[in-house]
Every structure is written in C-alpha cells, then in structure tokens.
Design a protein around this nucleic acid. Structure first.
Length: 113
DNA sequence: CTATTGACGACAT
DNA sequence: CATGTCGCCAATA
C-alpha cells in the first residue's frame, strides 16, 4: 500500500494559491502537457504564470503530482526542481518527446482545461 | 509596509 | 532564431 499521496504533510504548509495550482496540475493526463499560463488561467489569475512556476517549484510530492507536465506557453521545456534531464526523461516515458529544448507536436499534446 | 526573488510571457533588438 | 528588457504576480525577507 502506498502510504503517501493522499495528504502529504508539507502540503498543508502551502498557501491556498499554491495548493490550488497543485490541485489543478493534477488533472493533466499522462502523455499530455499544459503551460504555466494555462494553469494561471485555470486558478483564476491569468497574469500569474510566473507565480505558478514558483508554486510548482515547491511541489513537495513530485512526480506523483505531475508538475513535469507543465511547460512554457511557446512549447519550450521550462524549469524543473529535479533538473531538466529528469523532466525530459519523465515526459519521454509518457510518450512526450522533447527535442532541442522543445516539446514536439506541442499543439497536439497540449491539454486544455 | 517596502524590497527582493523567481520552473513566466510579450515584445524589441 | 537568440538574447535582452520590462511587466505581472504571489511568496518571503
């Protein structure tokens, strides 16, 4: 039985905004990606793409909460707490190919809320 | 309360 | 196409 994942202790220490971001990113399916900007819109603050990135940076339970499926609005990779190589590997494992720092077939793998 | 920081975005160069 | 600048926002010092 997996013991974590239901309510990670560090999760309760996050702000409402940060928790909202993590809750939403959780619905991005395997093999798809979303963007910092889309997430910002989804939580009701369309201009907070940057703040969304900061929130994801604090994700205490990655990669269970799939913050690795979040990229920049132009399809560029974006950041990752565990390092770019790790993010690329996780995506690759789900069938999302990254070439020269860009998500291939960005338009078709992009998940819209 | 003000200042700084950062997994961003749009635009100019 | 690559890089720099500036604006935006929430968290934190």
């Amino acid at each position: 039985m997996s013991k974590v994942l239901k309510h990670h202790p560090a999760l309760a220490r996050l702000s409402a905004f940060e928790q909202a971001v993590l809750a939403v990113v959780r619905r991005v399916p395997r093999g798809r990606v979303t963007t910092y900007q889309e997430l910002a819109r989804a939580v009701g603050t369309p201009q907070a793409a940057r703040a969304v990135g900061n929130a994801l940076h604090k994700n205490p339970c990655a990669p269970a909460v799939p913050c690795h499926r979040v990229v920049k609005s132009d399809g560029a990779l974006g950041g990752y707490g565990g390092g770019s190589p790790k993010k690329i590997a996780l995506l690759s494992r789900e069938g999302v190919q990254v070439r020269v720092g860009r998500v291939q077939q960005f338009g078709s793998v992009l998940f819209e809320f």
